Simulated assay, not measured.
Amino acid sequence: MIIIDGVLLSKGKGGVYGEKMMKGFRVWDPYRSKYAALFMIKKDDIKEVSLDEDLKVLYLGAANGTTVSHFADYVSCVYAVEFAPRPMQDLIEVSKRRKNIIPIMADAENPREYAPFMETVDMIYQDVAQPGQAKIAALNLPFLKKDGLLILMLKTRSVDVRVDPRTVFLDSSKQLEESGLKITDACWLEPYHHDHACIICRKM
């Protein structure tokens, strides 16, 4: 990972979404990207979730491709799944500039829709704004290699706005463990993203 003066950067061509540049690199803003927020929070112990050129990633909830574009600067391939038509248009434009992004318009809750396009991956990165986020992660585990990494960016208010975020976090963690995952780390993403948590798991 590239860090200069405490700032997380990526090496691809800039101008994807109006991001700032620093010494020829793209600034990866933690207020725009939950992965960048995780990196800044865990920067003294980030080895487990670091990105490298050998990784193949399934990205669930790709949205407009902001974070996807930074992932693509580091890893060999990103399968980017997005359901909403408008963000998908932006994602397709991003994929034209990053040849290792494979945009897939599908519902992450129904992985059979995109199974024909998939191979096994080293990492699943999930950032979906809907209920049942732990269930969605479990449904996509067949694509993850043994000992592969799952990074779930848990949007607690999207799961159930009526329930305390800490309760949602505990319930979701239990569901992930019941799916056969081992939770290796977890944290809240304050001050960058309110009521968002990150749960990091390994497939056993």
Rank of each mutant, 00 (worst) to 15 (best):
C201S: 14
E53A: 12
L9C: 04
V49G: 04
H194G: 02
H194A: 11
S173G: 06
V128N: 03
Y31G: 01
E93H: 07
P87C: 10
L154H: 02
M22K: 15
R112G: 14
A80W: 00
D5A: 13
E53F: 07
W28F: 15
M1C: 05
P87F: 09
Y31E: 10
K47A: 12
S172Q: 12
R162G: 03
Y125M: 13
E82Y: 05
M123V: 12
I101Y: 02
D122N: 14
F83S: 08
L170Y: 11
L9A: 04
P165Y: 05
F39A: 14
E82I: 03
E48A: 15
A37F: 03
L176R: 02
P116G: 07
T167C: 03
L149P: 00
P87R: 08
D185G: 09
S76N: 12
G61T: 03
I104H: 01
F169S: 08
M22H: 14
C77D: 07
L8T: 00
E113V: 10
I41C: 06
A36H: 03
Y125T: 01
K146R: 14
V16E: 13
G14L: 06
M123A: 05
K56T: 14
K20L: 11
K20H: 06
A62W: 00
V78H: 03
D29S: 12
L154G: 00
R157Y: 08
D195C: 06
V81S: 04
P131F: 08
E53H: 09
D185N: 14
S158N: 14
K174L: 13
S50N: 07
I41H: 05
S158P: 01
R166Q: 13
R97K: 15
P87K: 09
S158D: 14
H194D: 15
C201V: 01
N140A: 10
G6S: 10
D122F: 01
M204E: 15
P30V: 04
P191F: 08
H196N: 13
D122E: 11
E93W: 05
L170R: 15
G6N: 12
M123G: 00
M105D: 02
L170F: 11
L8G: 00
V163N: 06
D44A: 10
I199A: 01
Y74F: 15
R162I: 00
V57L: 12
I46Y: 15
K11H: 14
Q126Y: 01
P111E: 09
E113M: 13
D164T: 02
K42S: 07
L144A: 07
I2T: 10
A115N: 08
C77R: 14
P131D: 09
I3R: 11
C77G: 00
G24V: 06
E82L: 07
D147G: 06
Y114C: 10
K146W: 10
K155D: 02
S50T: 12
E109Q: 12
H194V: 11
G24P: 05
L181M: 10
D195S: 13
A197G: 10
R32M: 14
E82N: 08
D127R: 02
K13E: 15
E190L: 08
L150W: 04
Y79D: 03
V16H: 09
W188N: 06
V168H: 02
E19T: 08
D107K: 07
E178I: 03
G14S: 15
I102T: 09
F25W: 03
A137V: 10
W188M: 10
K182C: 10
